[in-house]
Design a protein around this nucleic acid. Structure first.
Length: 484
RNA sequence: CGGGGCGUAGCGCAGUUGGCUAGCGCGCAGCGUUCGGGACGCUGAGGUCGGGGGUUCAAGUCCCCCCGCCCCGACCA
């Protein structure tokens, strides 16, 4: 207990000040840091290694569903961006503009992409002529810039990294299927790789992507009870196809506009992992994406130092060859206890301790980051044991997050109760809604809660209930929450 | 962009009614002893006090402007 308090001096307690805890963790775990440019962070090697693993796991899924990666320009000529009225209007306040090349003023200013619909659609118009060119299934990994007024590390930065898929289809139905398919890819990805359960559904008109027909979303619940939009998938209909003139000649000799989708997941989800899994000791990274899955720490004692050091290196090499991401912390200036705290702060799932006692018995000590449970494992069983432990750990993280989501999702029909829960406990509230934008914005104003999504299937059935605010017959049951 | 808070060494802070060479803890460097949950001793390095301007014999301290970060709102991934 004493040592726990001692440690907390470095890290704000999660329950005392969630926001400060978040910033402390990001910086002390060396995920990212501020830079001299407002709203722009540097993603440090440890944070970037995490992002790379997250990115690769998603990239595999994007490719497995038939998409190819490509790269489009960073700049969007103003005229191009202005083509889709709703789209420009949505992004106008947060576009950064390039006005000069060297000392010369540009004839037409260039937007730094806030998203790539305009650029990509203008190019698709040149590529697509026949129904035989369809579908076009392209994804790009890129940086985008949105001039946000308020920024937060990972959650909302001026520049951020993401993937954006942009597809073209022959029929409306095919586009809708693609939109939902990618939503499901995201959902499964978040759950399997990041141990983050999400609520999925449709965005309301006021919350949908500027220029889209429909927007689907994944909403995760953070440790403080606020929701985080963690990915979106848009059915763009033919809005962009019409303004960018993306036409093809169909089999029936008719010229037609394509049906499009776009979908994206960003570095914001790094923030989701931190806020959903972290605790007062720091990060807790899901083993599947953790940059280091196990950290080996030697316990040195006088003479046997060399023997212990060699054993650490030997075990490290063995585990690495078995495919694990392992490192040894052999630094002698730090005591074991210091290292324990450091690597727990950095969220490494497992710690392997090797000391004189273990050497004698040909065993090693393995400790879990989440439960701090200590296990003595025979050295020759370490490879198999790690597999079991990492799998258990991943499952435990998911299970804990699922329980948290379930316990913080409440079905409420009474507005007074709605208000008090959103104020005190937060979390998701599932309530009947009449479907009007008036009620939606009034609820937002009165409670700061927004409609995160209209869920699918039976879940959206209002069961004859009345709108939580206006008492008119409800159209759906929808998810409300305060959100990031 | 509005309201509030903060900015002194890498981090956390102290610095009195304006007054000597700006301190403390941690961290950092060197040497030695240590090491199963943030070890210790000795020595040492490190500061345009966020930036600019002003008031004053004298500014970390008072005034004005600007910048950045955090929180709460309006806008968004």
């Amino acid at each position: 207990m004493a040592e726990e308090k001692e440690f907390v001096k470095e890290l704000t307690s999660k329950s005392v000040d969630f926001s400060q805890w978040y910033v402390d963790v990001v910086r002390k775990a060396e995920l990212a840091d501020y830079t001299t440019i407002k709203g722009c962070m540097v993603i440090k090697p440890y944070g970037f290694a995490l992002w790379e693993n997250m990115r690769d796991a998603l990239d595999r899924r994007i490719k497995a569903t038939g998409h190819k990666n490509a790269y489009f320009p960073l700049f969007v000529p103003e005229s191009l961006l202005r083509k889709e009225a709703e789209h420009v209007e949505g992004f106008a306040p947060e576009v950064a503009w390039v006005t000069h090349g060297g000392d010369d003023k540009l004839e037409e200013r260039l937007a730094i992409r806030p998203t790539s619909e305009a650029v990509i659609c203008s190019i698709y118009a040149k590529w697509i002529h026949s129904y035989r060119d369809l579908p076009v299934l392209i994804n790009q990994w890129a940086n985008v810039v949105r001039w946000e007024k308020v920024t937060r590390l990972f959650l909302r930065t001026t520049e951020f990294l993401w993937q954006e898929g942009h597809t073209c289809h022959r029929t409306e139905q095919e586009a809708e299927e693609e939109t939902l398919k990618m939503l499901e890819v995201y959902r499964e990805y978040m759950e399997t790789e990041l141990a983050l359960p999400t609520v999925v559904g449709l965005k309301t008109e006021s919350e949908k992507f500027a220029g889209a027909l429909r927007t689907y979303t994944l909403e995760a619940l953070m440790g403080d009870g606020k929701a985080l939009q963690s990915g979106t998938s848009h059915n763009l209909g033919q809005h962009f196809a019409r303004v960018f003139d993306i036409k093809y000649l169909d089999e029936d000799q008719q010229e037609k506009y394509v049906w499009q989708t776009s979908w994206g997941v960003s570095t914001r989800v790094v923030g989701a992992i931190i806020m959903a899994h972290g605790d007062d000791y720091g990060l807790q990274l899901p083993p599947r994406v953790a940059p280091i899955q196990a950290i080996i720490i030697p316990i040195f004692f006088g003479e046997g130092k060399e023997v212990i050091r060699n054993k650490c290196t030997e075990v490290e090499e063995k585990l690495r060859q078995a495919g694990y991401r392992v490192e040894s912390d052999l630094r002698e200036v730090y005591t074991p206890g210091w290292k324990f705290n450091l690597w727990e702060l950095k969220g490494v799932p497992l710690r392997i301790e090797i000391g004189p006692r273990d050497i004698k018995q040909n065993r090693v000590v393995v400790v879990r980051r989440d439960t701090r449970e200590k296990l003595s494992v025979p050295e020759d069983e370490i490879t198999e044991k790690l597999q079991v432990l990492l799998t258990d750990y991943q499952n435990a993280l998911l299970k804990r997050a699922q329980t948290f989501l379930r316990e913080n999702t409440r079905s409420i029909d009474d507005y007074a109760e709605f208000k008090s829960i959103i104020e005190e406990k937060r979390g998701f509230i599932v309530s009947p809604w009449c479907g009007s934008a008036e009620c939606e914005s009034a609820i937002k104003e009165e409670t700061k809660a927004t409609i995160r999504c209209i869920p699918f299937g039976d879940e959206q059935d209002p069961q004859g209930k009345q709108c939580i605010r206006c008492s008119k017959p409800a159209k759906w049951r929808v998810y409300f929450a305060r959100a990031y």
